[in-house]
Design a protein around this nucleic acid. Structure first.
Lengths: 169, 169
DNA sequence: ATTTTATGTCAGCCTTGTTGACATTCCAAG
DNA sequence: CTTGGAATGTCAACAAGGCTGACATAAAAT
């Protein structure tokens, strides 16, 4: 490691930015993400689905009637990848694709009753994990958690995240 | 979504645990993880490697001389998956595998000079992102961030994370 | 009338995960 | 010494879910 930048940082309120501290944060992020996805993964597995299906269900539920292009931007994958997932969800009757009213090229996506049921099971499992973590850490920690995560996002993604924030599900 | 559980939670210090708050946390986690991996991913791509290689390099660097079994437990993958990644890293001269001294069945893993160089580039890119996020959020937020992440881990993983915490790299 | 946009689809490739089977090496217990 | 089991490595086959490229269609925009 020779001499990394942070060892030369001065100022008492910046002293916590040692490489060691940063590495702990990196590893915490890695391990925590495993926990974050573990519970939904188990449910998905029972239904023969993967994380890609979960993400699609989540954001379709989040923004009812969203278009395919919107979804692509949120998920950060190619239309071919998304389409494969979306096709199975539509075939299985979890998602409905309606031709757009104003622009008939677009497809507006909705969860069916069955889709809502699965989405609820998945998000409830994930919320339960998050709820337990929030309780254990306390309100102040949660605020800090959100601040750091937000600062870690790419600029464009942060904008999309922010614009999602105030919508109603 | 009808009526989810958390709406019945009472007590003033638990009011922040609404489904809406939890969902924001879930989405923050999802988007932040994208940012978290984005910079190393670009470097890995130039070298023809993937995230699996990054993880292996990270933990071999983290715990010099670790055995394959230790690594398996940390990474949470099968030995076949790890072995494929490890084999290419060894072939490419980034990782050295030495027969164990006390137990000759074991293999002790080390980074070569070239391996350390790549690991340093990867972790420096990731640390830089983390450093910027930490600076933007401030020390108090960082403490909360770590608390929530730690509470989100599976118990066994949290123990492994904790036992990694105090070692020297 | 032409171009652009939104979407879907086919084909093929890669990484990275999985299971199952099997070989080798070597420590340790009988 | 022999045998059992643990640690490791390897081969084969498969699946999820990314990717690119090419092409088709419908509809909006120019």
């Amino acid at each position: 490691m020779a001499e990394s930048g942070s060892s030369s940082i001065s100022g008492e309120n910046l002293l916590f930015l040692t490489d060691e501290q940063l590495r702990k944060g990196i590893e915490a992020m890695f391990f925590a993400y495993r926990g974050f996805t573990a519970d939904p993964d188990r449910i998905l597995d029972e239904h023969g689905y993967g994380r890609a299906h979960h993400r699609a269900l989540h954001f379709i539920n989040r923004t009812h009637g969203t278009t395919v292009n919107n979804l692509l931007a949120l998920l950060g994958v190619t239309k071919q990848s998304l389409n494969r997932v979306l096709r199975t969800l539509i075939e299985d009757g979890l998602v409905e694709s309606r031709v757009g009213r104003t622009d008939r090229r677009e497809r507006n996506l909705f969860l069916t009753e069955a889709g809502q049921t699965l989405e609820r099971a998945l998000s409830e499992a994930q919320r339960e994990r998050m709820r337990a973590a929030y309780r254990a850490a306390g309100p102040q920690a949660v605020a800090g958690f959100r601040q750091v995560l937000e600062a870690m996002m790419d600029d464009e993604i942060r904008r999309q995240y922010a614009s999602l924030k105030d919508r109603r599900g």
